[in-house]
Write a protein that binds this DNA or RNA. Sequence first.
DNA 1: CTAGACCTTGAACCCCGGTATAAGGTCAAG
DNA 2: CTTGACCTTATACCGGGGTTCAAGGTCTAG
Lengths: 133, 133
Amino acid sequence: MRIGDVASAVGLSTQTIRFYERRGLLPKPHRDPNGYRTYDPAILARLQFIRNGQGAGLTLLEVAAILELRGEGTSPCTHVRELLSTKLEDVRARQSELVALEAELESLISRSQRLDPADCTDVAVCHIIAPRR
Amino acid sequence: MRIGDVASAVGLSTQTIRFYERRGLLPKPHRDPNGYRTYDPAILARLQFIRNGQGAGLTLLEVAAILELRGEGTSPCTHVRELLSTKLEDVRARQSELVALEAELESLISRSQRLDPADCTDVAVCHIIAPRR
DNA sequence: CTAGACCTTGAACCCCGGTATAAGGTCAAG
DNA sequence: CTTGACCTTATACCGGGGTTCAAGGTCTAG
């Protein structure tokens, strides 16, 4: 597959794929004699993994590190386990934050349905978004 | 109040307040003859509103839009309710992503613990931490 | 042979939410 | 009159995640 095939298969631009390569998320691909990148279809799963991790708040650098471990299955460095454990803690902490934000939003929405818009004052701007109790 | 008074009253830097002004979140303030910004204490409620909006996960652009509606004399309530509902959906989607990522990380950590840790005592051998290949 | 669709590179640019730096003006106290 | 705290502006920078631009090389169909 050439870069354009990969790009359209995963819904990214060719520039983004080259960008990922520069950032170390993708291995350096084979080059045809003309210099074109040529990919094995396995690259698609890798790109999917990148999207998953990224969508959940990992940086590209972190995704790159995880991909190394996942793909190679080699060198289970203590260092790497620490990285993954730290990330896991981060993910759990972020989950808690989002749960709190969810509750806050639910409360604001619920309040917005009980209040009269006429209560909004210029100073407060909008009664829906108000200081936490 | 001068900008420094406002800044310390709300716990922001003076640069941030000027930044908000440039972004259209704050009205252009009165200027003293010497050019200094002078604020009515009502600015504090507006800054509080901005903080609350950010706390609810709104971007500065979204907060600015609400403030602008208010400034035009429109009650922004309906708009705000829609905005908050959309945010709530975003937050829930992100939570699901994080749960999936948590499982992925747990799996990677578990696998890394089954592999032989003695193989990776040398820092240089740990290809994850090593410079880009 | 030429058009056009693909590919290559490097560099510059964009958004977000600020923060930092530089170079200067103003003002009250000592 | 100087010091120091405040204020002004413009401009650059940060990280994170790309996108766009410019200038070219390559391949395939007609």
